[in-house]
Design a protein around this nucleic acid. Structure first.
Length: 115
DNA sequence: AATGTGACATACC
DNA sequence: TGGTATGCCACAT
């Protein structure tokens, strides 16, 4: 216990960024990865999301989609439809698993968050 | 230690 | 215009 409390895992960073995503906004894996300084680790972001389930905190993974604005991770939710519903509930229009006007709703941590 | 994996991204055909 | 292939890096076994 308390041996590696301050251990900064990549997951933790990803969780932190995802948790900072404003309501009604969405982002993609690459942007988060880039913000963390690992632009080529976009896959790790998705991996972190997978671990977010085990994480005690709530991670709005539904606000994270792929570069195409497609809800690729919906299958990993408890209910695949829930991801779309959550987004629509926040004002993000989703059609057939894809975000409409993804660019409008896009939230770039590099821009919104001070580096 | 080495191999496998993955909720992506990019390039090529 | 869409499928295939490869890169990429951290975590799991």
């Amino acid at each position: 216990m308390a041996i590696k409390d301050e251990n900064v895992d990549f997951f933790k960073l990803v969780h932190a960024v995802v948790a900072l995503i404003p309501k009604g906004r969405v982002t993609n894996y690459g942007a988060i990865a880039k913000y963390l300084g690992a632009a080529k680790s976009s896959r790790m972001v998705g991996w972190a999301m997978n671990a977010s389930h085990k994480s005690g905190e709530y991670i709005p993974a539904h606000r994270v989609v792929n570069r195409n604005g497609l809800l690729t991770g919906k299958a990993h939710f408890e209910n695949p439809d829930k991801m779309q519903i959550l987004l629509e509930n926040e004002g993000v229009k989703v059609k057939d698993g894809q975000i409409i006007d993804f660019v409008k709703h896009f939230w770039d941590p590099m821009v919104e968050l001070v580096i």
